[in-house]
Design a protein around this nucleic acid. Structure first.
Lengths: 157, 157
DNA sequence: TTGATTGCAAACCGTTTGCATTAGT
DNA sequence: ACTAATGCAAACGGTTTGCAATCAA
């Protein structure tokens, strides 16, 4: 049923598979598909989106399996999640710590910023002044994207 | 039933009451109590907490009324909300734009930071470089508070 | 008086759980 | 064979809705 070699898997999947074995856990087609999807999807992805996309190719997958797999991966330290402006959960790869995730609370669009130097100056200040270790790379930063910022405020009526 | 003079209300309440009248909306005891609570509670507060606290003194209040009132106040521009690490909604006064809201995703504690100069440098960079207008004062910033950051990682199991 | 507002109850959405069955090892 | 993992269905918590009754204006 599982016909791919562990070694043939790319980054996340191979790490996850090794971790699975080490813990005596099992590699299932559901987990494999979810892993692949997480790897492909750059940026944040919602559990429901994962479910929908896996469901296309593997219709018998269940939503609880998606959640249980995400929980497991998070416990293994491979993914993390935060909540965007509408309160919905978004998962992303934990090793993806070299990005800022800017999420527009109007259109919902997300953008990734590679240069962390700007953020680290801010984070350093918060740390030295208040002892607060801001987690700016794992949790989305809310605001208005360029397009929405320049768009008219709201349809009058 | 409502025995206080509009002018006798403090900041938020008096503004809200004036706005209410202007729009032909009504001042109810439920709205008044919610307004008072929002004003007293510095920082972020969850709808459920508002419900619980109002419920003590006014047992017949309904959760839907709390939500509807918060929606109305947000539409009036008097309050705003964001979502903390566990995905739960937190409301706060909109005029409270001179604070950074640092929320610990471990213990859930929140702290307010008055000095915005540090944040604005960061926000300015994001704006000039990417056109993204980060909303650092309205949405909580996740991280670890000083206490949790210095605490042992987790009970060994 | 009268229409905005409420409480109620049910619907809703995303997530979680218990359990019998399935399937990776 | 052993037991982790799944699908299912029901429960859950927070939020939203339709509607008849209420009450601020």
């Amino acid at each position: 049923m599982i016909h791919s070699e562990p070694g043939a898997e790319s980054g996340l999947a191979s790490i996850a598979i090794a971790d699975l074995k080490r813990r005596g856990l099992r590699l299932t087609p559901q987990r494999l598909m979810i892993l692949e999807l997480l790897e492909q999807s750059s940026g944040h992805i919602a559990p429901e989106d994962i479910y929908q996309q896996v469901h296309r190719r593997y219709p018998m997958i269940n939503r609880s399996t998606v959640h249980r797999t995400l929980d497991m991966l998070e416990e293994m330290g491979l993914v993390r999640h935060g909540h965007v402006a509408d309160g919905a959960a978004r998962y992303h790869l934990a090793r993806d710590v070299h990005h800022l995730h800017l999420v527009c609370h109007r259109c919902g669009g997300a953008m990734e910023v590679d240069d962390l130097s700007l953020a680290s100056a801010f984070a350093d200040l918060l740390q030295t002044r208040f002892g607060f270790r801001a987690d700016l790379t794992h949790f989305p930063i809310s605001g208005l994207c360029a397009r929405c910022a320049s768009a008219p405020p709201a349809p009058a009526g």
